[in-house]
């Protein structure tokens, strides 16, 4: 399963161009919510190697960290890129080869969908594909040598997001990744070394950037009469604020006309 990263980047770039052009037109009409532009995550994660392969049979559960940045390209659809690094000890060298520990590094691109449950909770799911590398190290008593096992990662990530403010959230990110390794092994071992599976659970912080212009346009676009006719108890904070400023503006306009008339 060979991965052509240039081809994927080209597709993502073209996709970005097409849908971001469409988004400019739509955002004028939509939205009483600000449009989320960018989200940036940093998180810690616990990785659990799994499956009947050299990863699942050979590695201990490990810890790691990661960061992601995603751009909202059309409504709730986003694309992004991520980096992760995880550390695993070897529990069974007979399954992996004789080394002591490994550091798994992933770099991948992804696309996903963001669903807003309510004002503070959101869920997202995305699918990513990219490069993965295990940097394996022998213990110091055995020369401390290093070597690498590389491949391509396919990763399904889900996020449960709690928004503290519009700018900062906490995210819980369960994910599953399958790494397709390009390791040359004896034929009898090919199935064991073809791929490795990892289940991860992460907890991190998300920083969000919004386009607040949409909200201002929508609020001001409501007419004063329409807002005044609404029941105050049923009005949102945004509508109350819009009513306040529109009434103030109207009073100023009336004073100006009274001065001219007088």
């Amino acid at each position: 399963m060979k991965f052509n990263i240039r081809y994927l980047l080209f597709l993502l770039t073209m996709g970005w161009a097409v849908i971001s052009n469409a988004q400019v037109k739509d955002s004028i009409d939509v939205a009483d919510e600000p449009f989320r532009l960018v989200a940036f995550d940093i998180y810690l994660q616990r990785g659990f190697p799994t499956g009947d392969n050299f990863v699942g049979n050979g590695f201990e559960p490990g810890i790691g960290f990661g960061s992601r940045i995603q751009f909202y390209v059309y409504k709730d659809i986003y694309v992004g890129g991520a980096l992760t690094q995880d550390y695993f000890d070897v529990k069974n060298p007979a399954a992996t080869g004789l080394f002591d520990r490994t550091t798994k590094f992933n770099a991948y691109l992804y696309a996903g969908y963001d669903y807003k449950l309510n004002d503070i909770w959101r869920v997202q799911a995305d699918l990513g594909y990219g490069y993965s590398q295990n940097k394996n190290r022998l213990d110091s008593g055995n020369g401390g040598g290093k070597f690498r096992d590389a491949g391509n990662v396919l990763r399904l990530t889900t996020n449960l997001e709690y928004e503290f403010t519009e700018g900062v959230s906490v995210v819980l990110t369960p994910s599953y990744e399958k790494v397709f390794y390009d390791i040359r092994v004896p034929q009898a071992r090919e199935q064991q070394f073809a791929s490795g599976d990892y289940l991860n659970i992460g907890l991190g912080v998300r920083f969000n950037w919004y386009d607040f212009n949409n909200r201002e346009i929508k609020a001001v676009d409501k007419s004063l009469e329409e807002l005044q006719s609404m029941d105050e108890d049923e009005m949102t904070i945004k509508e109350k604020r819009a009513l306040f400023f529109l009434e103030k503006k109207e009073r100023r306009r009336q004073r100006r006309e009274a001065r001219r008339g007088g």
């Binding site: 096992d149 009898a188 071992r189």
Partner: peptide
Amino acid sequence: CEARLEDDIRAS
């Protein structure tokens, strides 16, 4: 500088 073994390979 680090001692390196061959990448992406195992023998039996």
